[in-house]
Amino acid sequence: MIEGIGIRKVYKSGIFGGKAVVAVDRVDIRIGECETVALVGESGSGKSTLGRILLMLIKPDEGRVVFDGIDLTKLKGKELRRIRTKMQLIPQNPEEAFDPRWKIYDSIAEPLRIHKLADSRKEEEGVILELIKAVGLKEEHLDRYPHELSGGELQRAVIARALTLNPKFMVCDEPTSMLDISTQASIVRLLMEFQKKLGISYLFITHDLELAKVVADRILVMKNGKIVAEQS
């Protein structure tokens, strides 16, 4: 499904780039169809960077990202943007995930509009209503602004937006670390349910080993930019 081969990313800081931090150090990672791989590690271990590299939101310094047989590192702007519809990100902080000036409806409709997937306003509305029900929100939520929703509701809306494009692969970057425990349970259950229904592969980034054990088929432990252990 998706594969990262020899991925390396170095951040340089200081005036002359003298201080270098190796965020990801020649990592190989493979996630199969319908598989959930959990990436566990402390903050600063490079797990978030690795997730973003697989989505090509960050360009790796070395290595390749192969998605469905296509080397993403060789693609340019437009082609890459088209492939991106097949892979999505569920970010850590749902309160930051939406443009604060946009209503939830417009934010969820945005991917459809960018990729011109709905022929009419009516079709667009139909798709969004169906999705919003599937993630457990109500129609009234659509007309609100992000700051009027709770963290759990927002994270459901984030999931709805990611699903508009029928992705095959999602990176969930600590999707519940800012949420309450009972909300965490419902969000994670929701993600697992969609995986079964739609056949999505997940890279599930978390620092909670207990959570990883429940969610994942395989667990990778990351430390200092390297994958140091694997258990299934």
Partner: peptide
């Protein structure tokens, strides 16, 4: 993050 999300939806 919302800018990153916009990038992620293409």
């Amino acid at each position: 993050e919302f800018v990153l999300c916009a990038k992620a939806i293409g």
